[in-house]
Design a protein around this nucleic acid. Structure first.
Lengths: 240, 240
DNA sequence: AAAGCAATTTGCTTTCGATCAAGGCAAATT
DNA sequence: AATTTGCCTTGATCGAAAGCAAATTGCTTT
C-alpha cells in the first residue's frame, strides 16, 4: 500500500502531460494499470515504423527521437525528459525511432488499457491534445534554429534549453540560480545530430564559449553557465 | 437553400481535418456557424503572439506560418493548403505569424461557437487531435530536411512536396500523371525561407534541375516535372 | 599506477552555400 | 514609347562549417 502510494507519487506528480488535469481518483485508475521499466542507455524503444505496444511516462532519464536518411545522416527531432509522455494514442505507428540516451526509468501503460482510459476519463484526451500542441510549438521553434541560426547560436540555444529543462525537473546541482551547473545528458555526437552540425563544429563552439569564460567545463559532461547574460546574447533573441 | 447546400459542399467535402469523421447532421451544425472570407496575398491573419478570434478551413489558396529572429532572418515553419485547418482550439495564442501567400478563401468559425461545438460533438476533438499529430509528423520530417539535407536535396524535396500537395487538392493541370505540372504558389524568396536557404541558392538549384532536364519551367512559377525518377533520386531516400 | 580505448579537441584543408554585384525580363507606371 | 519596379538569374568572391587527420583527454580495466 505504501509502495502503491509511492508509485502514485512518482508517476502522477511528475507527469504533467498525462496527469496535469486529472482528479485523484482518476490518477488511481492510471496507477492501477501502470508498470515500471528500467532501460539502459542506447536501448531502442521504438524502431522507425514499428508498432509500440505501450505508452509511458518518463520518470527519469532522457529519450531521443531520431530520423535517418539512407546514407546514415541522422537528425534528432525530439528530446524527452522526465515528466514527458511517450507514445501516440490511437496511432499504430510512429515515423521515427525512439531510443534511450541515458539510463531511463519508464512508467508504462498497456496500449489498449490506456486508450480505454483515455476514452473513459473526461478531459483526458483534451489534455493529451494540448500537450501535443506544445510539442508542435517546440518542433517549430527548433525548425527556426535548424534553418536560420549559425553554429554558435545553435550551441548556445541548446545549452540554454538543456539548462532550463534540467532545472524544471530538478536536476541542477547549483547554489546560485544564475549560474546553473548540470550534467549534459548528450554526447557531442548527439548534440551534433540535434543541431544539424558535425561533432567537430559542436566541439569548437563549446571550446569557444569556454575560452570566452561564458561557460565552465569539468570533464566533458559537466557544464556550468558562468555568464548567463552573454550566453543569451550568443543565442540571439526572437521577435516578430 | 441552394446556396446553403453549396456552402455545405465547399466546406464539408474538402476539409479533411475538421469534417472527416463527422456525420452529415453535425456538418450541418458547423455550416450553421460558418462565414466566408476572401483575403488577398500578403494578408497577415495572425501576428505572432496576437490572439486569433476565429478558426478556419482553407477553401482555396495557401497560408504560411513563419517565425522571425530579431535581425529579420525568417523561417517558414508550416504551409497550409486547401482543406487544411487554421487555428488552435482552446489556445489563446500562437507563437508564430500566419500570412496568406496567394489569394485565400477561408471558411471561418467564431472561436467561442466553434469550441462549444468541439466539446459538444462526440469525436470532434479526437479528430482535431489526430490532425495535430499529422502536423507534428510533417514538422519533424521537415526538421530532418533542414538539419541534414543539401541545398539540392532540399529543393527537390520541396518540389515533390508541392507537387503531391497540389495533386491531392486537385490543382494539377496535367494529362500525364507521371509528369505533373503546376503553378508554384511561393516566390523564390518564400521557398528560400521554407528551406533555410538564400534566394540565389534556390534559383541556382532550380536552374540546375532545368538544365538537367529533370524539370521544365515556363515563366517563373509554372513547373513541370519531366523526370520523376531522377527528381526523387535528387531528394535522397529515407530509411531507418 | 599503467594500459587500453573511446570520446573529444585541435589544426589544416576543402567545399558548399552565403554574400556581393550585375544584368535580364516582364508587368506596371508615366 | 520610355521608365520604373519587382522578381529572378547568373557570375565572382568570401566565409562558415564540413571533412580529414592527428593529438589529447578522460574513463575503465587490470
Amino acid at each position: 500500500m505504501a509502495e502503491h502510494l509511492l508509485r502514485c507519487e512518482s508517476c502522477s506528480v511528475r507527469h504533467r502531460a498525462v496527469c496535469g488535469a486529472l482528479e485523484h481518483a482518476e490518477i488511481e485508475r492510471l496507477n492501477a494499470i501502470a508498470h515500471h521499466k528500467l532501460l539502459p542507455p542506447g536501448h531502442v524503444i521504438l524502431h522507425d515504423n514499428a508498432e509500440m505496444h505501450y505508452f509511458a511516462n518518463i520518470v527519469s532519464g532522457v529519450v531521443k527521437l531520431t530520423k535517418t536518411l539512407a546514407d546514415g545522416r541522422q537528425q534528432i527531432v525530439g528530446l524527452q525528459f522526465a515528466s514527458d509522455f511517450l507514445g501516440r494514442p490511437f496511432r499504430a505507428q510512429s515515423p521515427y525511432t525512439a531510443e534511450t540516451v541515458t539510463d531511463v526509468h519508464l512508467c508504462t501503460y498497456d496500449k489498449g488499457k490506456f486508450e480505454r482510459l483515455v476514452k473513459d476519463i473526461d478531459g483526458f484526451e483534451h489534455r493529451l491534445f494540448q500537450h501535443t500542441l506544445d510539442e508542435l510549438d517546440s518542433a517549430r521553434e527548433w525548425m527556426l534554429l535548424l534553418g536560420r541560426k549559425s553554429a554558435g547560436e545553435k550551441v548556445a540555444s541548446f545549452l540554454l534549453m538543456v539548462a532550463r529543462r534540467m532545472e524544471t525537473i530538478g536536476c541542477k546541482a547549483s547554489d546560485d540560480p544564475n549560474r546553473p551547473r548540470f550534467n549534459l545528458p548528450l554526447s557531442r555526437a548527439e548534440i551534433a545530430d540535434f543541431l544539424g552540425l558535425t561533432i567537430e563544429t559542436v566541439s569548437r563552439q563549446i571550446s569557444r564559449l569556454k575560452v570566452d569564460k561564458i561557460i565552465g567545463l569539468e570533464g566533458n559532461r559537466t557544464i556550468s553557465i558562468l555568464d548567463m547574460r552573454r550566453l543569451m546574447a550568443a543565442m540571439e533573441q526572437e521577435r516578430d
